[in-house]
Amino acid sequence: MSLSWSIEATAAGPAVARAQGRVTEGVTFDEVIALADRGPLRLHLAGVTQISSTGVREWILFMRALSQKPHPVELVEVSPTLVRQLNMIANFGGSATVRSVVLPYYCDACGNEQARVLQMEGASSGAIAPQIRCDACGAEAEFDDIAPNYLSFSTR
């Protein structure tokens, strides 16, 4: 599924845009960029599942466009797919502030996948719980990435 946005109007606080799907060459950001003209913007990114190389380009251009706006932009619940790109590509997040990321967990006992959200303020890799209780079978679900590297974007 190509990337889609749902925009939530809020009476107070930043405008909120929720992303869902794959970031590919066909993605459009115009509506979200326009939101940043009007005030602070919060992007919910937990639903981004894939990104292609052309999607990386479009995303970087999107972040550049947001960087030129007068209002702050924050990224919340950044999906593991996008965390990976933040760690690999220096300017992937532009000037936006990463407020929170999604931590992926996988249960070897039953194959269940689940997630937790980590608030980034003051967080380090030590804040990542290595195991949590599996919602499906009660066994230990392990953090499904390389913990010491997962937040390396935040120390650059």
Binding site: R22, T49, Q50, I51, S52, P80, T81, P104, G111, E113
Partner: peptide, 12 residues
């Protein structure tokens, strides 16, 4: 039964 993150890589 491939986990979702690996499926994402296959798609990419």
């Amino acid at each position: 039964g491939v986990p979702s993150r690996l499926r994402g890589l296959i798609g990419t």
